[in-house]
């Protein structure tokens, strides 16, 4: 049953001390699918995303990514994580390295490429995000939008099978959002499987295959963007969409 689904998370629970953040979430994502996860803050969207590459350890449940059991103690988690790119709200570029250094680090240390090979791949990745000419800049010399694109290049250089985006545009000035969405759109066109936690409803409407609405640690409903945005079945979804669209 799993050859169609590249990501299969089942019965995910996550407790942070007394807080029950995820209360039994199932999420399946098909290859080349773009899934948008929306929901009010504190609904568990980011935690769910972080459970998929085990940055958070689920309290219970199972996560399969590209046929690998992410939660098994036998899994080489560092090897498995190469196949799962992640882009963070706050970019998290390494400030002591150039853009090129940021992209080559994992290529050299994890993928085992030589410096020359790694740099060639990294320059290609930077080219794909439109920053070939910024390779020698440090993060401090780049705008927020450029930093986030370098972060995307850092992930795609490893040729992941899935990309996770955790509010990739929330920390950006409005005029810089477009350039990042542009890169995400081109990734989508190249067939990348993507799971995106974001409030960019316009982008979701245009690009997503499916929108998942989460509230209070559970998936409330999911479906094609048009259905979720125009005719939501649940009162809570309606209320959330209404609030988002008011501004």
């Amino acid at each position: 049953m799993s050859q169609k689904h590249i990501v299969e998370a089942r019965g995910i629970h996550k407790h942070f001390g007394p807080l029950h953040v995820l209360k039994g979430v199932d999420l399946e994502v098909k290859e080349r699918e773009l899934v948008f996860i929306i929901g009010p803050s504190g609904s568990g969207k980011s935690t769910l995303l972080r459970c998929l590459n085990r940055l958070e350890e689920p309290t219970s449940g199972s996560v399969m990514v590209d046929g690998i059991d992410m939660l098994s103690p036998k899994t080489d988690i560092n090897h498995a994580r190469q196949r799962i790119g992640m882009v963070f709200q706050s970019f998290n570029l390494y400030p002591h390295m150039t853009a090129l250094g940021n992209v080559t680090l994992a290529l050299r240390k994890v993928a085992g490429k030589s410096r020359a090979e790694a740099e060639a791949i990294a320059r290609q990745a930077l080219e794909r995000v439109g920053l070939a000419d910024r390779a020698d800049h440090t993060p401090g010399q780049l705008s927020g939008g450029q930093q986030q694109r370098v972060a995307i290049a850092r992930s795609i250089a490893l040729e992941p099978r899935v990309m996770l985006f955790d509010e990739p545009t929330s920390a950006l000035d409005p005029e810089l959002v477009g350039s990042v969405l542009e890169v995400m759109r081109s990734l989508r066109e190249s067939g990348m499987t993507m799971i995106v936690v974001s409030h960019e409803m316009g982008f979701a409407r245009n690009a997503a295959d499916r929108v998942v609405f989460m509230d209070n640690g559970l998936i409330v409903e999911q479906g094609p963007p048009a259905a979720i945005f125009e005719t939501p079945a649940h009162e809570r979804t309606r209320a959330f969409i209404g609030q988002i669209q008011r501004h």
Partner: peptide, 27 residues
């Protein structure tokens, strides 16, 4: 050093000690 530095590095597959020596300690 912010948690995000650890997370970014670990998410690309670097091990704990690789992250410590390449990302965290230089900063």
């Amino acid at each position: 050093i912010p948690r995000g530095q650890w997370e970014a590095s670990r998410s690309t597959g670097l091990s704990y000690s690789q992250t410590l020596f390449n990302v965290i300690l230089p900063q």
